[in-house]
């Protein structure tokens, strides 16, 4: 009886686990450069992962990335210069954002 129950539970867990294993969103962090209202895209200068006291959010790479934000959940609207963190998925040749976090305007550490 108990064993059967455990089996059910295990199957359920494996199912749950596999549902989203196939896809993985990627994360991008960097400086917000501009937004194209018509094309619904954002351009961000990517920062790398070398966080140092001088570069709290990573070192600028100079690499400009364009992300489609038409369907994204956007927090505080970023202004040029703000650090943003974007979770996106690659669909075809396009990067489609899921969520856009305004890192500099909502420093959670201060709350």
């Amino acid at each position: 009886m108990r064993r059967k129950y455990l089996m059910y539970l295990a199957t359920l867990l494996i199912l749950l686990f596999s549902v989203s294993l196939a896809s993985a969103a990627e994360v991008l962090q960097g400086k917000f450069v501009s937004q194209d209202k018509e094309k619904k895209t954002m351009t961000v200068e990517e920062y790398d992962l070398n966080m140092t006291p001088e570069h709290k959010y990573g070192v600028p790479t100079g690499n400009l990335v364009e992300v489609n934000v038409a369907t994204a959940k956007i927090g505080i609207p970023p202004e040029p210069g703000d650090i943003v963190r974007i979770a996106y998925k690659v669909v075809g040749a396009e990067k489609v954002a899921l969520k856009v976090m305004n890192v500099s305007k909502q420093d959670l550490r201060k709350k």
Binding site: S20, L49, G75, I76, V100, Q106
Partner: peptide
């Protein structure tokens, strides 16, 4: 406006990466 939080999955691996990614995605 709403505050949106994106978990930084770039420096995570394994189980932590899985859950942080799920947080972002679903």
């Amino acid at each position: 406006v709403d505050l949106v939080v994106v978990a930084d999955t770039r420096r995570l691996t394994g189980v932590q990466h899985y859950f942080a990614n799920l947080y972002n995605e679903n």
